[in-house]
């Protein structure tokens, strides 16, 4: 498995990363190097094996439907690079 320039672009779009033109070939090479290593799993015999998503053997725990938290508006908006007194702000989105 290896990827080409077009596939790199698709991955970068999904991952929302900016790849400068001069880095395209270097990044493609480095990803292909890792993919080459990952390839190794293809040889493994895994038919009938149940995928393991989690090492934890238990079941999910839940909480009661109770409000336990209060507003953090000021603290939250203070963390943002760009906000007014009520909202986070982003460049205009056209739907």
């Amino acid at each position: 498995m290896s990827i080409n320039r077009k596939e790199l672009e698709e991955i970068a779009t999904l991952a929302q990363l900016h790849i400068p033109e001069q880095q395209v070939s270097q990044i493609t090479d480095s990803l292909n190097q890792v993919m080459g290593m990952i390839e190794h799993i293809n040889g493994a015999q895994t038919s009938g094996v149940e995928p393991m998503a989690h090492p934890h053997e238990g079941w999910q725990q839940w909480r009661e439907d109770v409000v336990t938290d209060q507003s953090h508006k000021t603290a939250l908006l203070k963390l943002a690079a760009h906000a007014d007194e009520d909202h986070y702000l982003v460049p205009k989105v056209i739907e």
Binding site: D86, H87, Y88, L89, V90, K92, V93, E95
Partner: peptide, 15 residues
């Protein structure tokens, strides 16, 4: 919710 009519250049986000 995204609010598009509050600013000309920005969308405002209410979570």
């Amino acid at each position: 919710k995204s609010i598009h009519d509050k600013y000309d250049q920005f969308s405002a986000i209410d979570l």
